[in-house]
């Protein structure tokens, strides 16, 4: 039906055009007069044709674009939320069944129930809340410091080529270095204080953030910069209005990885560096349970650490990333 429409207009229009041409060639006139007539005829031509063109274009636009399909909440639930939940439930069930049938020594394989009991014990004694709050506060604060340090450094390295050639490989190397390696040095420098923990977190997270920003800026299509220049943007506005927004996907990926590294580094630091003025975090709680040979407590703490990592990813980074990618058309549908 819409195809017929286009074909119909297509055959109609050339004749209309030709008639108009003939009309004008038949009027013999001096140059200035004809140019006046020309604009008059041109005006009539454009109002008639403009409406025609408008509807034609509207039709073609409709044919060439799909209406965005709304995301089905139930479908999202069944395809991306349900499978991991089912998997975890099956895993725990298998674990419990194993404990029932084999009946291993509880100090080597505790049952899921005893792990849950360990968590609730820690909760009732307030140790869990203190540990989670202390660790979260340090993790988030350390990560924010890493963002504040890493972002300008990343921008500087991305925009100044000689600097990047000199420092870039070292930053990439630092990303490979396990941040636990900094713990002994940090203890010698800062003693058993919070500064040690923050230093390790900083060294863990900053390289990821810098690298993410650099790769984001590198992946900015050159034509976007060119357009920015053509539109009249100087270096400063080119950076803020074109390059930075275009580099956002790489930057967010770097932030996400930076958070993961922060959290890991923090746990490593808390497990190794205990005592002194360092408060009681999840890592310290883990170490304490190990000293008491309380495997259920160790497993419980591991689960809490894992859960917090996943929770921050799910609640904060995943929606941020998904929204950004969908806006740019880099993510189709969202359920795949």
């Amino acid at each position: 039906m819409p195809h017929d429409d286009i074909a119909g207009r297509g055959t109609q229009d050339p004749t209309a055009g030709r008639v108009a041409t003939k009309e004008r060639t038949e009027t013999p006139a001096a140059d200035p007069a004809s140019s006046g007539l020309d604009t008059l005829a041109g005006a009539r031509y454009s109002t008639n044709e403009a409406d025609d063109l408008r509807s034609l274009e509207a039709g073609l636009d409709r044919l060439q674009t799909d209406d965005a399909r709304g995301t089905n909440a139930w479908r999202t639930f069944t395809t991306s939320v349900l499978p991991p939940i089912i998997f975890v439930v099956v895993l725990i069930a298998a674990w419990q069944v194993y404990v029932w049938i084999v009946q291993p020594r509880p100090d080597i394989v505790p049952s899921p129930i005893s792990v849950v009991t360990a968590i609730s014990d820690a909760w009732q004694s307030d140790r869990l809340q203190t540990a989670v709050l202390t660790s979260l506060e340090r993790g988030v604060f350390g990560f924010l410091i890493a963002v504040v340090v890493g972002t300008p450094l990343g921008l500087l390295l991305a925009e100044v080529k000689p600097l990047r050639r000199a420092i870039g490989p070292i930053i990439s190397g630092l990303q490979v270095l396990p941040s636990v390696a900094w713990v002994p040095a940090a203890i010698l420098w800062f003693g058993l204080t919070d500064a040690t923990v923050y230093f390790v977190v900083l060294m863990g997270a900053t390289p990821s953030i810098i690298n993410g920003l650099i790769s984001g800026v590198e992946q900015v299509p050159p034509q976007l910069r060119r357009v920015g220049t053509v539109l009249g943007a100087g270096p400063a506005r080119l950076a803020t209005l074109v390059v930075l927004p275009a580099a956002l996907p790489g930057y967010v990926a770097g932030l996400k990885q930076g958070w993961a590294f922060s959290w890991r580094s923090l746990m490593a630091a808390e497990i190794i560096a205990t005592g002194g003025t360092i408060g009681f975090g999840l890592g310290s709680m883990l170490d304490q349970s190990r000293e008491l040979a309380d495997l259920a407590g160790v497993l419980a703490t591991i689960l809490v650490i894992l859960a917090i990592g996943i929770l921050i990813e799910l609640v904060f980074f995943a929606p941020l990333e998904r929204r950004m990618l969908r806006r740019r058309g880099l993510l189709q549908g969202g359920t795949k």
């Binding site: 034509q223 976007l224 060119r226 357009v227 927004p245 275009a246 740019r328």
Partner: peptide, 9 residues
């Protein structure tokens, strides 16, 4: 230009 080079965001 040949490519529209619109800002995708």
């Amino acid at each position: 230009f040949q490519e529209s080079a619109l800002m995708p965001w």
